[in-house]
C-alpha cells in the first residue's frame, strides 16, 4: 500500500510543482469577487447571528475554496485516464487500490489546504475578526478529504470528460450555493433544508465556521464528517475496482 501512496504523491506533486503558481492565482480570484460583492456591496454593518457578515463569509469562502481545489483533482485524474492513459501505470503496478486512493486523496487534501491561505490573507485585508480554534486543522483535513475522495469516486465512475463536467454542474455548484457558505441555512424553505441536510458540505461549513468564529464545535457534525470520509473512501475503492471490470 505504501508504494502506491508514495508513487501517486510523487507524481502529483512533481506535476503540481510546475503549475502551483497558476492554480493558486486562479483559485484566489473568485473568493475576492465574493468578498467585494457581498462583503463591501452589502455594507459593513450587516450582521449574521451576532457577527459581522464579513466574519461570517470568510469561513464560508475557506470551505468553498478548499472544496473547489480538492475536487479539482477529478479533472486531472480524468485527463490521466482518458487522454494520456498515465493512470494505467498505477493499475498495472503491484500496488493496492487503497494505496492509489489514499495517494490521490492526500494530494487533494494538500491542494485544498493550500487554497485556504489566500483567504486568511483576505481576512486580514478585509479586516474580518476571526478567532482561531486549533480544531480548525482537524476540520479542514476532514473537509478536504471528503471532497478529494468524492473526486476520486466520480472520476472513476465517469466514462469521459463531459461526464465529469455534468457532475460538477449538478452536484458541486449547487452544494456550494446551498450549504450555508454564503448565508445561514435556517432561512431556507423546509424542503431545501431537508435537501442540504444530506450534503456533506453543510456539516463541514458549520464545523469550520465554528472553529473560526469562536462558536462551540458540535461533535455530532464532526462525527458526520468522519462518516462521509469513510463513505467516500469506500465508494472510491468500489469505483476503482469497477474500472477494471
Amino acid at each position: 500500500m505504501f508504494n502506491g501512496i508514495c508513487g501517486v504523491l510523487y507524481r502529483e506533486l512533481l506535476i503540481y510543482r510546475n503549475r502551483a503558481l497558476k492554480q493558486m492565482l486562479t483559485s484566489s480570484l473568485s473568493p475576492l469577487l465574493f468578498l467585494i460583492a457581498f462583503g463591501w456591496g452589502f455594507g459593513r454593518d450587516v450582521t449574521v447571528g451576532g457577527i459581522s457578515y464579513i466574519s461570517f463569509l470568510i469561513p464560508g469562502l475557506i470551505t468553498m475554496n478548499s472544496l473547489t481545489q480538492s475536487f479539482a483533482i477529478s479533472g486531472e485524474i480524468n485527463i490521466s485516464r482518458f487522454y494520456f492513459h498515465t493512470f494505467d501505470e498505477y493499475l498495472i503496478a503491484p500496488v493496492s487500490h487503497a494505496g492509489i486512493v489514499i495517494g490521490e486523496a492526500a494530494f487533494g487534501v494538500f491542494r485544498g489546504i493550500l487554497a485556504t491561505f489566500i483567504i486568511f490573507i483576505y481576512a486580514f485585508v478585509f479586516d474580518a475578526s476571526l478567532s482561531f480554534n486549533p480544531f480548525f486543522l482537524v476540520a479542514i483535513v476532514l473537509h478536504t478529504f471528503i471532497f478529494s475522495a468524492l473526486a476520486v469516486t466520480t472520476s472513476m465512475v465517469v466514462k469521459d470528460h463531459s461526464g465529469q463536467a455534468l457532475i460538477n454542474n449538478f452536484a458541486i455548484t449547487p452544494m456550494i450555493f446551498l450549504c450555508g457558505t454564503f448565508y445561514p441555512i435556517d432561512k431556507l424553505p423546509y424542503a431545501f433544508k431537508l435537501l442540504v441536510s444530506v450534503f456533506p458540505l453543510t456539516y463541514s461549513t458549520k464545523v469550520i465556521r465554528a472553529t473560526l468564529t469562536g462558536a462551540e464545535v458540535n461533535i455530532v457534525y464532526v462525527a458526520l464528517m468522519m462518516f462521509y470520509c469513510i463513505i467516500f473512501f469506500l465508494t472510491s475503492l468500489w469505483a476503482l475496482r469497477k474500472v477494471e471490470a
Binding site: N3, I15, F84, T86, E89, P94
Partner: peptide
C-alpha cells in the same frame, strides 16, 4: 510483469528520469 501498452503512456510534463523514478517507486 512488464507492460508496453499500445499507446505511449508517459507523463509528458516530467523528465525521462522522473517517469522512471515513479515506476521504481510503484514497483518497490
Amino acid at each position: 510483469i512488464g507492460v508496453v501498452p499500445q499507446q505511449n503512456n508517459l507523463d509528458r510534463d516530467l523528465t525521462a528520469y522522473e517517469n522512471l523514478c515513479l515506476h521504481a517507486i510503484l514497483y518497490g
